[in-house]
Design a protein around this nucleic acid. Structure first.
Lengths: 154, 154
DNA sequence: TATTGTTATACTCTATAACTATA
DNA sequence: TATAGTTATAGAGTATAACAATA
């Protein structure tokens, strides 16, 4: 972000609006979306993050979950313990490497995950302030941004 | 969100991109912005939220902080204790009502708050994927959305 | 020797309940 | 009686360090 001043200003404005919508803004202070949805399903935010990361039908080493969630391996153990107690996931020994434990969603896990994603993906009511063309344009622009590789700063 | 299908689809797409950018997405899993910035400054997320809410030069009853941050009064006490220990805020008795304690930022608090906001408001690198016109348009659309009153669903 | 996962432990975040002072 | 804030306490979230098993 060291371009021309006008562009920077527009970027700051856009970003600030995003923070606002997401519940991290200073002005209206909406409740933050992700933790709220997690709480509605009786999940800790990271538990929901883990469920999200797990693809239905797929199998994932515990280590990968920790990397994705930016949390310690010991906490992944705890996370997995609790999700397993609730019957949402199961552990399976890896056939390839006897050190690794693979995680898979159970049927109940697939269902809970779907509920979580449905709630999360529900756009905010405020989108009604835009007409259809505006909304489509917004979607295009944001998708272009989100698809871009983050340039590691520094 | 019960409009026409096209509009809904565009909204979902836009919203999904926002979640992605903010670190709540499933695909790239960027680290979530707000907690990361707080950690960089050695603050708990809610501590940073409190600092944000406090306007420099202003004075705010503790109760209001709890409402804004959606947390319990007892935790506000703790929050304020720790922020006060670090010299970022100070308590002042209210002249109007001897039950209420007013909170004000100290000089150090104003400075820390500014640092936090600067980091938070820094747009993501990915905005570089848009040219100036696109960025301006994005800013306009998002601002319009963020300024809209949320229609309480139900 | 390095890596995956677990256990033990402790620290931080946050809420509930009971309480004090004031209104 | 209701409201602002505090204290005591407990629970959930998360990390560090030491460890076992496997590679």
């Amino acid at each position: 972000m060291a371009g021309n001043p006008d562009s920077d200003a527009a970027g700051v404005e856009a970003w600030r609006a995003i923070l606002e919508l997401v519940g991290w803004g200073g002005t209206h202070a909406r409740p933050p979306r992700f933790p709220t949805v997690a709480a509605e399903l009786g999940l800790a935010p990271k538990q929901m993050g883990a469920l999200w990361y797990l693809e239905p039908g797929d199998t994932t080493p515990m280590r990968a979950i920790g990397e994705r969630l930016h949390c310690d391996a010991s906490y992944v153990t705890d996370l997995v313990d609790r999700l397993e107690e609730r019957g949402l996931i199961e552990r399976r020994p890896s056939p390839d490497d006897r050190r690794v434990t693979l995680i898979a969603l159970t049927g109940a896990g697939v269902e809970t995950r779907a509920q979580a994603l449905a709630k999360l993906h529900e756009p905010p009511e405020e989108f009604a302030a835009l007409d259809e063309d505006e909304l489509r344009r917004l979607g295009e622009l944001l998708t272009k941004v989100a698809a871009a590789e983050a340039i590691p700063s520094g």
